[in-house]
Design a protein around this nucleic acid. Structure first.
Length: 337
DNA sequence: AACGTCACGGTTGAG
DNA sequence: GCCTCAACCGTGACG
């Protein structure tokens, strides 16, 4: 049982059943915060690992440490290590995805108005034709154009009166359910669209877009669903001020074990205390290099963990604001634990 | 033994 | 201010 309560701007997590998992040697403060996994690591259920641990995972992988060893060393489940490495491998970002919130709407008033206009000019126009016009006329791009079914819904709900003028219904000729069955990717692109809709060109993520994988029900499937990261998913997130502060060296990067409590990662615990949402902007804080400048990244990875891991990571270390944390310029979110 | 995947129980935040 | 819902999280188990 975990109870999360906000105290003075910090989220404290209390656990009621921690004592069963720690050989009876848990630090009293650790007992109070978070939960302990099978490896003895502290985690907060439902919340991302702190950024310095995520970075540490990448760093160790870069150094050729096997994921299983990383898991043991950092006391993070191997599934989590696998996921973070896979995401980094795929997107170049170590950051967790955006938690919570709703997708930005693609049917903005502007789009609705344009659809309405098209329908009024040509009552017989099909939804798919409207969709093409939205693209062709530059009202939308391929990432944020509404699906045919969305357009049909708009026609039905918001411009429904036009039907009574004798215009043939889209459904009369071309059931959208059939369309969506045939072209489920449209929905995926629609979902991905929002990420781009509010970006300036400078904000568009550096990593090449990947075609979303679509499952049978039209949703994002597999990795695309499990680990959507910009621009693959819908809602890109970039580090908030606190996350930046963390990433850039305000938190100790090493993980010495407390000699009195060998079953716990004290740095993580420190994180739990230090990192907990002090969301006060620190945008003017100059970044510190997260890794010593003389840190040597050798070479090819011993376990075959992707050669393309090296480049972005090194790039990230030479330029902390670059690819590892995603593109600059996006609205930062408050860092959360 | 190592690792990819997924169900699960949890948190989050826009609408 | 509360509720809903769909996104996310890491763990732990399975193959």
């Amino acid at each position: 049982m975990v109870v999360v309560e906000a105290v003075g701007g910090a989220t404290h997590v209390n656990t009621a059943d921690d004592s069963s998992n720690n050989c009876g040697r848990k630090d009293p403060q650790i007992q109070q915060y978070g939960e302990v996994n099978q490896l003895g690591g502290v985690f907060v259920n439902g919340r991302p690992l702190p950024n310095h641990i995520r970075m540490r995972i990448i760093e160790l992988a870069q150094l050729g440490i096997r994921p299983c060893d990383i898991s043991r060393q950092l006391r993070v489940s191997h599934g989590c290590v696998s996921k973070i490495l896979a995401r980094y491998n795929e997107t170049g970002s170590i950051l967790p995805g955006a938690i919570g919130g709703s997708k930005p709407r693609v049917t903005t008033p502007k789009v609705v108005s344009y659809i309405k206009d098209l329908k009024q000019k040509d009552p017989g126009i099909f939804a798919w034709e409207i969709r093409e016009r939205l693209l062709k006329d530059g009202v939308c791009d391929k990432y944020n154009v509404p699906s045919v079914s969305s357009i049909s819904r708009i026609l039905r709900n918001k411009i429904g009166s036009l039907h009574h003028l004798g215009a043939p219904s889209h459904y009369d000729k071309h059931p959208t359910s059939l369309y969506n069955t045939l072209y489920p990717a449209a929905a995926a692109y629609t979902a991905a669209a929002a990420a781009y809709s509010s970006m300036t060109p400078q904000q568009v993520p550096q990593h090449p877009p990947v075609t979303p994988q679509v499952n049978q029900s039209g949703g994002l499937a597999g990795k695309a669903a499990a680990t959507p990261s910009p621009p693959h998913g819908c809602r890109p997130t970039w580090p908030g001020a606190q996350a930046m502060s963390d990433l850039l060296g305000h938190v100790n990067m090493s993980f010495p074990r407390h000699q009195d409590s060998p079953h716990h990662n004290y740095n993580y615990y420190n994180y739990l205390q230090l990192q907990l949402p002090t969301c006060a902007p620190q945008a003017n804080t100059l970044p510190h290099a997260p890794i010593p400048s003389n840190h040597h990244f050798s070479s090819p990875l011993a376990n075959g963990f992707s050669s393309h891991l090296s480049a972005p990571l090194q790039n990230s270390f030479s330029n902390p604001l670059s690819s590892m944390m995603g593109p600059p310029g996006l609205t930062p979110q408050p860092a959360s634990l």
